[in-house]
Write a protein that binds this DNA or RNA. Structure first.
Lengths: 223, 223
DNA sequence: CCGGATCCGTAACGATACTG
DNA sequence: CAGTATCGTTACGGATCCGG
């Protein structure tokens, strides 16, 4: 039995909207859970595997808080034991926050020895949204498919609006297959795309011109 | 004497840009310090007074971290003992993040008994930027001045771009004088502007039509 | 008086083991 | 698989004290 009136103790106690945001979402791991759920529905074990050092008790706490706040909802499919967590509408409205954070992080948060972890390809679904340059996509109407390591995801562009998600694209202009290491190096500017293509590190099947357009639509090192 | 190799211990250890952002700015009080510095230069004591429960030791730690990361710079004016803290260019680039956070907070983070603190008028300088609706400001070229409690600040609009800061406006279209309580109620939708004007809770001197335009340029309760 | 540094109690977190 | 229980560790909160 636990105290029911456990109303979040360590609040900032400021009337400011930024402080209130942080009262709800400022504690450790919380925004990373939201980030993971922006990719798609996730199960308890998946969230835990994404952030092993969090520990199951903390994940339980965070998910409970997020549910109480109306940001996350637990969805139980009847047949299987498929309890998954998804973002509510209010939770989906956190996407601008996460994308703004991702943009700053991509630009300024340096990669050093403290974050050695292998990058997770599924997070590219969110990273693409952050790196997208809408004004360059005027009139573009096409979809691309990516197969990085073992995850398949798509990017679909309809005249300045981008839609990304896990799974295959419908009628993709190209399908790009590679491993996450190679992709990371290209995104970081350490490796040139043409170079990687010549060295058979990436496989591109489809419209080469669409691939050139794609490269122009997202900001990597070269703007 | 302290350990020099104290490199931030509790990092997420993920390659994701969101995680790296939180490694640098995710600890308690950090983003609130950035928020305060977005208003303008601040002294140690001012930052401390804005968040009394932080304690001087934590403020010292946070300011040191922020300086090491190149987000904050300490500026010492030679004559007086005027050591103030300001944001570097990299720190100023955090504004989109803080504004996205503020927008979500304004919309969803409810005000309850846990954040009773009087709202600080100087933060309106940042709140205005978050609530600004650029598309409605096409062709507008004017400045407004506000005097809330004891702080004076301005909002200057030049065709979809807003500039706010502490201090007086140059040739303001109107000067609005009121107290923060009244202003908060109006912003929250609890009090109608016309009503407040009739009850002499706010004093408006200048162009009434400009005031109507102003109300349309920022999103309060009524969109 | 301002800009910190030191010290200590408490609450949050991290890791592992355990259970329906 | 989805959590709960337990416990050691770290970060935070509050107060007091120090040097220019």
């Amino acid at each position: 039995m636990k105290a029911i009136t456990d109303m979040s103790s360590r609040n900032y106690g400021q009337a400011c909207s930024v402080a209130r945001f942080l009262d709800q979402l400022g504690s450790r791991w919380t925004l990373l859970i939201v980030r993971d759920l922006l990719v798609g529905p996730r199960r308890f074990k998946e969230l835990l595997a994404n952030s092993p050092s969090m520990g199951p008790n903390l994940l339980t706490d965070r998910l409970r808080e997020l549910q109480e706040q109306g940001i996350v909802r637990k969805v139980a499919a009847p047949g299987a034991s498929a309890t998954t967590y998804i973002l509510t509408e209010q939770g989906l409205e956190l996407e601008p926050v996460v994308l703004a954070i991702a943009r700053w992080g991509m630009r300024y948060a340096t990669v050093d020895e403290s974050n050695p972890g292998a990058s997770r390809p599924d997070l590219l679904v969110v990273a693409f949204r952050a790196a997208f340059l809408p004004e360059r996509a005027k009139g573009v109407e096409e979809a691309y498919e990516f197969r990085i390591d073992d995850t398949i995801f798509f990017a679909q562009i309809s005249d300045t609006v981008l839609h990304t998600g896990l799974g295959s694209a419908t009628r993709p202009a190209f399908v790009l297959t590679t491993d996450s290491q190679t992709f990371d190096k290209i995104a970081a500017g350490t490796l040139d795309v043409i170079d990687a293509q010549e060295r058979c590190l990436i496989d591109l099947s489809g419209d080469e011109q669409a691939f050139a357009r794609f490269l122009d639509l997202f900001k990597g090192r070269g703007g």
